[in-house]
Design a protein around this nucleic acid. Structure first.
Lengths: 215, 215, 215, 215
DNA sequence: GTATAACCGAGACGGTACGTCAAGTCTTGTT
DNA sequence: AACAAGACTTGACGTACCGTCTCGGTTATAC
């Protein structure tokens, strides 16, 4: 959607020969920063106006739409597209717990919860309108998390902590769904014990069914 | 918010002697029905306009705002406030699976997914603005589900299928979170096997931790 | 338009035998009084709401519309329909001056100027809609004034102060038009000298043209 | 209120360097024209809706409110702000008569009478709300007429037709007030004789009082 | 250097929904 | 039958903000 930083696409001098002023990376950063600031200072998604972002960034609406196709895209890039650190613990359990903590942290700090919900809702709208489906491609958090889980379980397998296939999807759903449910649903945050239990639930979700199961 | 049908609040004859035209139950139903119809015929929450609902119900904007404080409240009452049937199976597993199916059905049919997401997002906004917290009180689905889980586990205990305490909250989070994640996140629907696995995950989430736990 | 006091129409007992509660003259007076009070306490015609009048009179909207066909009619009856005293001076000049003073007083005190203008405007609308024309029949001030001028000039003729025909219409226009212009147009009020000059202008306007006229 | 055509304020190049899209003169004209058309095609002031003006002008409500603060301002600019031609006769009497005819023409053709009245009433309201007073500044007809009278009497003085001071204010009141009274009051129009008489009355009103006056 | 072209800020534009408000009508139960 | 209360339909209002477009002006490469 967003051709990020613009040069990196084909190397720094790929557009050699193209006349005209180049995009201002400074503007882009200022806009993202302004969007981030507004996102936390505001109580509703609709309170973040494109106009206000442009003004705060000493930029203009037109420049925003030159880089992003919609308000939701901008907020997503500004607020949700933050790198999740790859867990580097020495056990599957420690890694999963670390992943949960990272994601929770972003969901709590990146924006107020309603902004989070509003952005997500609008991204869903956009996607449906464009007839796109697939696994959470609009939510960087989501796609990153899938990668992280994959890598974490790989390491566990190498470590000998895990055998057989991994139900990544199920693990992801338990992890992300529970967090979402909690934070958006405003139950309040997890305490340490709940975090521990969630970790185990995620791991269990990933484990394939044995032939013996409950009633 | 909406004092529904109006009389039932204090019994049928509590407002005997109250002068003035009574609330038109016909209008109320027509508005809810119109909201329901628009909710499924439309791809985005914002495409449901108050004006259109009023027009389709042969009613008026003013009447809507007399009874609901916002568009989101109306959509919630129309679309999300549908009774979840109480499962009546002969095993815990059957009951949980039934609960999951019911909720999934509502989430899939009551409105298009983006409408669901948009409504939820706006309800979250309203709640934050009003400084209210607590467990999903704005989402009837959520609160009903908690009651259903409670009852289902109670029956399991009486049946001898369950011992000890129940982590209702955890079960709820796995169930609702996974569904939400799936349907809103547009992974597509669950197949039978996934449904089966989700059922087991919900049950496991409710079970308290034993002292022996995974790696 | 307004069936005034209602009984006088066919005598006090004409509707003997007609079942049902009789109209409350008390209500009617309370409504007029409430309209009068609101008219002076408010800056714009639109700030006088039917609802507010009804409430202040401890009456109801329905009752208002049972007696008057529109808001403007009510305000007219309440605010503009005040008796102009018949001048009883001993000279034409004194009488005219007295008439001017009376009318000015009503225009200044009966309602704020904008309320006066708004009421008039709406009365004009109603009249045009009803395809009625004719001399100011909706503005009691106007019709009374014509009568007063007529009588005043009659007495002057009897007194020997006036000979020949009277251009009542012209006198009325100068008198009423100047006042209207001044007060609605917000030039401020007349001082004594201006009042004196206006008096003379009104008298001159009534005098038929002689054969010799100005340059 | 409306900074008309926008450049002419300080000369054609005063706003050199001012960024931003310039006001669309085409929009402005289309809106004024649409307002004019609606003003004559309609029987009541309230029947001219901002929405309808915008639509007819292929413009939008937002654009209207960007340049005019209220409906009344727009109608005023569209309908009342039409240039009065300066009389160029060879006698005072001819000039005054010409001025009367011009003003009458505008009052009769610019809008239906109720629209005229409604606009004026709302302008009066606005002015009172803003605590502004002064001589008819909201009614271009009014202020133009004062200038025209001034100039006409100046020329009469140079011509030798007039001596001494002029009571402009009084002349204005008789002229404008009579016209207003007639047309708004719906007495019907002036005939030639009445016009003639009005002309003389206006001239007499301007003449200062001599020491000998009527009874 | 000078031409060209993409960028930039500012901000006006068309469009559309919102939520408010008052007018005038209708309904209900009481007097 | 008239009344107070109050819910109803209607429709304009004025606001807000989206995403687009038009300005004048500013770079940066190409010739």
């Amino acid at each position: 959607m967003t051709p990020p930083p613009s040069e990196p696409r084909d190397g720094p001098s790929a557009n050699r020969g193209v006349p005209g002023r180049k995009r201002s990376e400074q503007s882009r950063e200022a806009l993202l920063q302004a969007a981030r600031e507004l996102s936390v200072s505001v109580q509703r998604y609709r309170d973040i106006s494109i106009q206000a972002i442009a003004k705060r960034a000493s930029s203009s609406k037109a420049t925003i739409y030159r880089w992003w196709t919609s308000k939701a895209e901008l907020i997503r890039d500004a607020v949700l597209d933050q790198p999740l650190p790859m867990p580097r613990g020495d056990s599957l359990r420690a890694d999963i717990e670390s992943a949960i903590r990272s994601q929770r942290e972003i969901m709590k700090t990146a924006a107020s919860l309603p902004v989070f919900a509003g952005t997500w809702a609008e991204l869903v709208e956009n996607r449906v309108l464009a007839n796109q489906g697939g696994p959470m491609q609009d939510c960087p958090l989501g796609s990153q998390m899938v990668g992280i889980l994959e890598s974490v379980f790989d390491r566990a397998r190498q470590r000998g902590d895990w055998e057989g296939p991994v139900h990544l999807h199920a693990a992801y759903e338990v992890l992300f769904g529970s967090l979402f449910c909690r934070l958006i649903g405003q139950f309040g945050d997890f305490n340490e014990e709940e975090l521990d239990r969630l970790t185990l639930r995620v791991i269990e979700a990933a484990r394939p069914l044995s032939n013996s199961d409950s009633r």
